[in-house]
């Protein structure tokens, strides 16, 4: 019994310790974003790496999700003669929920793992120690640019993804389900509010921050050897994905 309670206590303490460490790591990195020197070139490079190179995966995910959503809503709506809601539900569903969440999860898989592997390898090969000896703060040089780039890149990625997702619904709606092209677009625009779009983009910014933070935290604190880097990569993707889903629920409660 005592052993069982002890193991629960140990797990709770370990969880609280990790939360504390991540909070300290994040606050340290955020403070470096606002203090000189600023590494603009590194931030821009990360913006390209995180944002631009993630466009194909986010675009394809959004396209197929929008298309499948149109089919699902049409078939569900047909049960109570509400097929006409397809354009508006596809649009609202994409911009408020599916665009940011699925985009976030896809980018978490691509970017969190990449950041964790890169920083983990730098830790293992002493490149992070080398940065310190070269009078360069590794948090400022490696972590702050990634956090900043991901936070600003994700809303843009998701905005593009939302558009492609709605296009996916439009293609299926007009090509397979017999919707009139003009009416489909009119319904899409008429039923969508500016708040739907902005809430989705705000979610995307938070998800971007989470993705970069988890990648950086686990990579920066990677264990030794290939196994340590591998574990850091897994932890980064899993924790980023879970935190995105949890943050999505909290933000949805806040926004709506």
């Amino acid at each position: 019994m005592y052993r069982f309670l002890g193991s629960i206590g140990f797990s709770v303490l370990a969880f609280c310790t990790t939360i504390g460490r991540i909070t300290l790591f994040a606050s340290g990195a955020i403070s470096h974003i606002f203090r000189p020197p600023f590494y603009g070139r590194e931030t821009l490079a990360q913006f390209m790496q995180i944002g631009f190179y993630s466009l194909p995966v986010v675009g394809l995910t959004a396209l197929f999700t929008g298309a499948a959503l149109a089919l699902q809503i049409y078939s569900g709506g047909a049960r109570f003669s509400a097929e006409s809601v397809v354009p508006s539900i596809v649009a609202i569903g994409m911009v408020r929920e599916l665009g940011p969440v699925l985009g976030g999860l896809m980018v978490a898989g691509r970017v969190s793992s990449s950041i964790a592997a890169e920083l983990g390898t730098m830790r293992v090969t002493e490149q992070i120690d080398a940065l310190v000896t070269l009078s360069t703060n590794p948090i400022k040089y490696l972590v702050a640019p990634r956090l900043l780039a991901a936070t600003f890149a994700m809303p843009i990625l998701v905005a593009v993804g939302d558009t492609i997702g709605i296009l996916g619904g439009y293609l299926v709606g007009t090509g397979r389900l017999g919707f009139n092209s003009t009416n489909y677009l009119k319904n899409t625009i008429d039923f969508m509010e500016i708040g739907d779009v902005t809430s989705g983009l705000a979610k995307a910014a938070v998800f971007g921050f989470i993705i970069a933070l988890m990648g950086c935290y686990h990579g920066y604190n990677s264990g030794r050897g290939a196994q340590g880097v591998g574990r850091a990569t897994i932890n980064a993707v899993v924790s980023a994905s879970v935190m995105i889903l949890a943050a999505n629920y909290i933000l949805t409660e806040v926004f709506f």
Binding site: T121, M122, T125, E126, Q127, D129, A130, V132, T133, L134, S135
Partner: peptide, 20 residues
């Protein structure tokens, strides 16, 4: 000041630790 302190040092790491 750490930067002033570290500016006095140069270091060759075991596996060179060059930035990839």
């Amino acid at each position: 000041d750490r930067d002033v302190f570290l500016a006095r040092f140069g270091m060759l790491f075991q596996n060179a630790a060059l930035f990839d």
